[in-house]
């Protein structure tokens, strides 16, 4: 039982990070129709923004986290202006390959800037362990679960209680209608990129202390976030959350109770089964070939 508690909390924490990455991915997809294959590199950028602010610039953590997130928000806006706008009219395959190419560039730009040696990004609650029912649990894992929950609550408030968020939902539903209703569509589209970058930044900052920060960490996260999105349902926010937590838990519990060698095959296997049997996922859109 103690083992199960430890595994469960760990799985939740990892799942929380996947969920945040998946939410960012879904927000961009719903608003702009872009399937962002560079989503994993966004998270990696978030971790390295933390490395730059906390380790290189040696800022105290509240300031450093703020600066890192600010940098990520700027990056999201830049991405919108420099990459999204020129590519937005292209066919879906071009956008997929384009974001793959952007991801490769992002990863290797980070490699050039930070080198191949990994970094140890400290957590604000570094070294604090809690004992719950005999299970040792790091305070950081709990913090990750809490932050994920808070972020989900904030997003809900944004999308359902502010005019900004309602506008974003309107754009996601029907961009023409939104434009006709006088919404500043471009601004809302930009905002969705900024939001995605911010969420990836938060995921990255939380991930840094759990793993080491290295520039090749993006791809594995992306694969898991994709699986989470498919399982939860493409374009669905609750789906991204449920999918992320599910992938995180299945990874940790699957490695423990099924096979550690094939644990990733479990989440991909479930993803492929979902694609074949229920491509709209648990909560997702009905149309199969949107975009």
């Amino acid at each position: 039982m103690t083992d199960f508690i430890q595994l469960f909390i760990n799985g939740l924490a990892i799942g929380g990070v996947y969920a945040l990455a998946a939410i960012g991915f879904v927000i961009v997809y719903s608003a702009t129709g872009v399937v962002n294959f560079a989503a994993g590199q966004f998270v990696m950028f978030g971790t390295f923004a933390g490395v730059a602010m906390l380790l290189n610039a040696e800022l105290p953590w509240p300031v450093g986290y703020g600066a890192a997130l600010l940098a990520m928000a700027l990056f999201g806006a830049l991405f919108f202006a420099v990459l999204y706008l020129p590519l937005r009219k292209s066919p879906v395959v071009t956008i997929i390959i384009g974001t793959v190419a952007i991801g490769i560039t992002m990863q290797n730009a980070a490699l050039l800037a930070f080198g191949s040696w990994p970094f140890r990004l400290p957590s604000p609650v570094e070294g604090v362990n809690l004992t719950i029912a005999g299970a040792t649990i790091s305070a950081h894992a709990i913090a990750v679960v809490v932050v994920t929950a808070v972020m989900v609550a904030l997003l809900w408030l944004l999308f359902f209680r502010t005019s900004l968020g309602i506008g974003m939902r309107a754009v996601a539903q029907d961009i023409q209608a939104a434009r006709l209703m006088g919404l500043k569509v471009n601004r809302l589209l930009a905002l969705s990129w900024v939001l995605a970058a911010l969420l990836a930044g938060i995921a990255g900052l939380m991930l840094g202390p759990m793993w080491f920060a290295d520039t090749s960490m993006g791809d594995p996260i992306a694969l898991k976030a994709f699986a989470a999105t498919i399982i939860g349902g493409f374009g669905s926010l609750p789906g991204a959350i449920v999918g992320g937590l599910f992938v995180g838990l299945s990874e940790v519990l699957g490695a423990s109770y099924v096979s550690s060698a094939y644990k990733d095959l479990i989440s991909f296997g479930i993803m492929i089964v979902f694609l074949l049997v229920r491509p709209q996922g648990v909560f997702g859109e009905r149309v199969q070939d949107r975009g």
Binding site: V35, V92, V93, I96, L223, F226, A227, I230, F234, A261, Y262, D264, L265, F268, G269, M271, I272, L275, L276, P279, Q288, D289, R290, G291
Partner: peptide
């Protein structure tokens, strides 16, 4: 698999490739 289109197919084939590597390695 080919009932899928667009990014669904892209992700499914990506999953296929990752699974292939995993089986070949294990």
């Amino acid at each position: 698999l080919l009932r899928l289109k667009g990014h669904y197919l892209a992700l499914a084939t990506l999953g296929l490739n990752v699974s292939f590597s995993m089986v070949a390695a294990n």
